[in-house]
Amino acid sequence: VKVYLPNKQRTVVTVRDGMSVYDSLDKALKVRGLNQDCCVVYRLIKGRKTVTAWDTAIAPLDGEELIVE
């Protein structure tokens, strides 16, 4: 899953069964001094942002793009 992060940064996270968006992005956010409490995650669908819950399973999102703001 390709993830666009604040400050024009981006990362790619590996999809693993049983993991949530929260778990999958935890390290990427912490390395950048961010956490899930201060950010909102969106799914990018056909160029439009849709709010996605942090506890959403990451497996069904394989191949999609997320935006964290």
Rank of each mutant, 00 (worst) to 15 (best):
V1I: 11
V3R: 02
V3M: 02
Y4Q: 14
Y4H: 14
L5K: 00
L5E: 02
P6L: 02
P6G: 05
N7D: 14
N7P: 02
N7F: 05
N7H: 08
K8R: 13
K8F: 06
K8I: 03
Q9N: 07
R10A: 10
R10C: 14
T11I: 12
T11D: 08
V12D: 07
V13T: 01
T14I: 12
T14N: 11
V15W: 11
V15A: 13
V15S: 09
R16C: 13
R16K: 12
D17C: 06
D17R: 11
D17I: 08
G18A: 05
M19Y: 06
M19L: 10
M19V: 12
M19F: 07
S20A: 02
V21P: 00
V21K: 05
Y22D: 02
Y22A: 14
Y22V: 07
D23Y: 02
D23S: 10
S24W: 06
S24F: 06
S24Q: 06
S24M: 12
S24T: 13
S24G: 15
L25S: 01
L25M: 04
L25K: 04
L25R: 01
D26C: 14
D26T: 07
A28F: 10
A28G: 02
L29N: 04
L29E: 00
L29F: 09
L29C: 00
K30F: 04
K30W: 00
K30A: 08
K30L: 04
R32E: 09
R32L: 14
G33D: 06
L34Y: 05
N35Y: 13
N35T: 14
N35L: 07
N35S: 14
Q36H: 09
Q36S: 09
Q36W: 10
Q36V: 13
Q36A: 12
D37Y: 06
D37A: 06
D37C: 08
V40Y: 08
V40R: 10
V40H: 03
V40P: 01
V40T: 09
V41T: 02
V41G: 01
V41P: 04
Y42S: 05
Y42M: 03
Y42L: 00
Y42C: 04
Y42I: 02
R43S: 07
R43G: 01
L44Y: 13
L44D: 04
L44V: 11
L44I: 15
L44T: 09
L44A: 05
I45H: 13
I45D: 11
I45N: 05
I45Q: 12
I45L: 11
K46I: 04
K46P: 01
G47S: 03
G47Y: 01
R48Q: 11
R48L: 07
K49F: 04
K49C: 03
V51R: 13
V51K: 13
V51H: 10
V51F: 08
V51I: 15
V51G: 03
T52L: 14
T52E: 07
T52K: 06
A53M: 04
A53W: 03
A53T: 10
A53S: 12
W54R: 01
W54M: 05
D55L: 01
D55N: 11
T56K: 10
T56W: 06
I58Y: 15
I58Q: 00
A59C: 09
A59Q: 13
A59H: 13
A59W: 10
A59G: 14
P60D: 15
P60W: 09
L61I: 09
L61W: 07
L61P: 04
L61Q: 11
L61H: 07
D62K: 11
D62V: 15
D62C: 15
D62M: 12
G63K: 03
G63E: 05
G63P: 05
E64N: 13
E65F: 04
E69A: 05
E69I: 02
E69M: 03
E69Y: 02
